[in-house]
């Protein structure tokens, strides 16, 4: 399969250009690639983990209720068990006491799996960043696909984040060097769970995933 020159959410099928494909589609002939079909199917049936941490979880529930109706995007099946879930929405402050549990849940989820960091706390610690028991961003321990800022983000923002994730899933390749993470045999799927130390988590972050940003300082 040749590599398409452009990076639209729908990679073109084979050597047929998008214009030709549209032309055929108008005549009632659908041409698709396995890659496209695979991404289309996966992106429209994301099952999130029913996993609420703090304030943002209430907005996550609100996104599932009638007014916002996350079911329109095929993601209404909240699974209480990580074994059945595709998407972990880290909705709220991750404390140091909770962080090992979050990593463990992530490890229990089968591939392909995705992570949304919902809200300022999950991204960076947010307003509670100074806290001694607050993890300064869940991306210190697990890889995050989509960040949704806000405190808390509105349900619409969560829906927007979900559609962004759908675009990301649809753009994933089946093979080649740019293949999706779950199709690369060497890519890490499980991450080390931190231990409770005497003063802090051990280690305080996963060095393979996270390095502290270099801060610009005035001379």
């Amino acid at each position: 399969m040749s590599e398409p020159a452009h990076h639209t959410p729908f990679p073109s099928a084979g050597n047929i250009s998008d214009a030709e494909r549209e032309d055929l589609r108008r005549h009632g002939i659908l041409i698709s690639s396995l890659e496209e079909l695979y991404g289309w199917g996966r992106s429209n049936s994301i099952w999130p983990l029913q996993f609420g941490l703090a304030c943002c979880a209430i907005e996550m529930i609100a996104a599932a209720t009638a007014r916002f109706d996350i079911a329109r995007f095929g993601a209404e099946i909240f699974r209480p068990s990580p074994r059945q879930a595709d998407l972990m929405i880290v909705s709220g402050t991750v404390t140091k006491k909770m962080a090992p549990q979050v990593v463990r849940l992530w490890n229990q989820m089968p591939e392909p799996k995705y992570c949304i960091a919902m809200g300022a706390c999950a991204i960076s610690g947010g307003p509670f960043k100074q806290g001694y028991n607050v993890l300064k961003g869940i991306d210190r321990f697990i890889p995050v696909d989509i960040y949704i800022p806000g405190c808390p983000p509105r349900p619409e923002a969560l829906l927007h984040g979900l559609t962004q994730l759908q675009d990301k899933i649809r753009a994933e390749r089946i093979s080649g060097p740019q293949a999706a993470r779950h199709l690369q045999p060497d890519a890490a799927s499980e991450f080390p769970v931190p231990d409770f130390g005497a003063h802090d988590l051990q280690p305080p972050s996963n060095p393979n995933l996270f390095t502290a940003p270099v801060l610009p300082r005035k001379a």
Binding site: L53, A54, C55, G92, T93, T95, K97, M98, Q101, P127, F128, Q130, G131, Y132, N133, V134
Partner: peptide, 25 residues
Amino acid sequence: GYLHRNHEKIAESTSYLGSMPYTDR
């Protein structure tokens, strides 16, 4: 303790008004 966000400790180094948004949470 799984959501112990150190509200009280943060409030000790924040102004009185600055703690008001934390009470929301």
